[in-house]
């Protein structure tokens, strides 16, 4: 059965739940990719619960596909997939353990995970292959691929961008989580990569730039991507690394780190306060 999509106000509430799920997975003292999971949390929530065609059966052939090429942000995926009922909520507490289901990076043993990613730069190519396969099948399913802005350093991304543009893959949509910070420093300091929208346009894509934390803008951009024919769409989602967690916002050191007890408490309190404000 197809899972019903949430409306914009339900999605806003859901983003808090998704961030809370992320916190469940990385309690104080446990290392995890908080920064990049938080920056993409709103986009992931909107994709899985507000835009994509998803079903009770994660393998339903009519589903839309979402691949996190920036596989290290998989906590954001798990936080959404658990809301779709694809695995037991208890698994959130056993991420990256020998007995747990949820691996440190996307693995196809996990329901709802569509490809193996984590070695950066490969996900858009895999998404392209899926989009080609779905076109051969005359399927109207769509393929979404989330990339990091740091990940765009990988040359393979541009190989895929060139090929997807050449093949006019209008069933493919890339979302760039432009949080401006990569593993060790800002994108600007590690390897500047300006004019992203112009670059994607030059590779034959329809490029849209949005605030990646604005639910209405995300919904509108995805609709625009759906109605764009003859070319793939790239959504440059301007985001904040560690979004919602003041101590982590915009900081490379929370790319993959453990929160202190104090930070964890602050993170929880922030989500509770945001929840009260929405009520």
């Amino acid at each position: 059965m197809e899972i019903k999509r949430l409306n914009a106000s339900e999605l806003k509430r859901m983003t808090l739940r998704v961030r809370s799920n992320i916190l469940d997975m990385i309690p104080a003292g446990k290392v995890g990719h908080l920064g990049g999971s938080s920056s993409i949390a709103d986009v992931a929530t909107v994709l899985y619960m507000g835009h994509m065609r998803v079903f009770d059966d994660p393998k339903d052939p009519a589903r839309d596909r979402l691949i996190f090429s920036k596989g290290h942000a998989v906590l954001a995926q798990y936080a959404c997939l658990v809301e779709l009922g694809y695995f037991d909520r208890e698994e959130l507490h056993h991420v990256k353990t020998l007995t747990g289901l949820l691996q440190g990076h996307p693995d196809m043993s996990i329901p709802g995970i569509e490809a193996v990613t984590g070695s950066l730069g490969q996900g858009l190519s895999v998404s392209l292959g899926m989009a080609l396969g779905l076109k051969l099948d005359h399927s109207d399913s769509r393929v979404f691929c989330v990339l990091g802005d740091g990940e765009l350093d990988e040359g393979q991304v541009w190989e895929a961008a060139m090929a997807a543009g050449a093949y006019g893959m209008d069933n493919l949509c890339a979302i760039i989580d432009a949080n401006k910070v990569q593993a060790t420093d800002t994108v600007q300091k590690v390897l500047p990569n300006p004019d992203l929208a112009a670059k994607w346009s030059a590779f034959g894509w329809h490029a849209i730039e949005i605030d990646g934390h604005d639910i209405d803008q995300i919904l509108a951009a995805l609709e625009q991507a759906r109605s764009t024919k003859g070319k793939p769409t790239a959504i440059i989602a301007n985001t904040v690394k560690g979004k919602c967690f003041a101590f982590a916002e915009g900081k490379a050191q929370y790319h993959n780190a453990a929160m202190t007890e104090e930070e964890y408490r602050e993170a929880r309190e922030t989500l509770e306060r945001m929840g009260r404000e929405l009520a």
Binding site: A115, L128, L132, D137
Partner: peptide, 10 residues
């Protein structure tokens, strides 16, 4: 990697 994607669609 694109071949992987094609394999994933059967």
């Amino acid at each position: 990697s694109a071949a992987a994607g094609l394999a994933l669609t059967g």
